[in-house]
Amino acid sequence: MAIFPNFGAVGGAAQLRDIVGALLMIALITSVLMLIVCAVTWALAASHGHYQAAARGRAGVGLACATAALAGAGVAIVNFLLGVGASL
């Protein structure tokens, strides 16, 4: 399934494509780095008995996974929004 935004319906499509691509890349890189940091925090805190810090690390891992999923679905979200904007 090839899902790609229809940039022909929007003026300034080249700039929009560059901006969306850069934002998705930044979001994915940030979420992966956050996933690594939170997983290490969770592991170290759990092994040393700091259960509150372990709970915060576990929550961070969940948030990083959700952020990565939203960034991965970003193209479909942009497709939807461009379709809504073109029909207005």
Rank of each mutant, 00 (worst) to 15 (best):
I26N: 00
R17E: 15
H50W: 08
D18H: 08
G62N: 09
A86T: 07
L23V: 03
L35A: 10
H50S: 11
S31L: 01
L81A: 14
A54L: 01
G74C: 05
V20M: 02
S87P: 03
V78R: 04
G12F: 02
S87Y: 09
R17I: 03
A53N: 08
G85D: 13
S31A: 15
G21Q: 13
L88H: 12
L23K: 08
A86Y: 11
L63D: 06
Q15R: 10
L88E: 13
I3H: 11
M25N: 08
M25K: 07
A66F: 10
A45F: 08
L70H: 00
V32S: 06
L82A: 03
T41F: 03
A54P: 02
R56K: 06
D18T: 12
L23G: 04
I19Y: 14
T30K: 03
A69L: 15
V32N: 04
A53F: 07
I19P: 01
A66W: 08
A55W: 11
F7K: 02
L16F: 13
A54R: 05
A27G: 00
L44Y: 07
L63G: 02
L24D: 02
A46S: 15
M34L: 15
A46V: 02
L24R: 13
A71V: 00
Y51S: 14
R17Q: 15
I29G: 03
L28K: 12
L16Y: 08
T41P: 01
L70T: 04
A9V: 15
G83V: 02
A13C: 06
L44V: 14
T30I: 00
W42S: 09
A68K: 01
L35D: 04
A73N: 14
F80V: 11
G72Y: 07
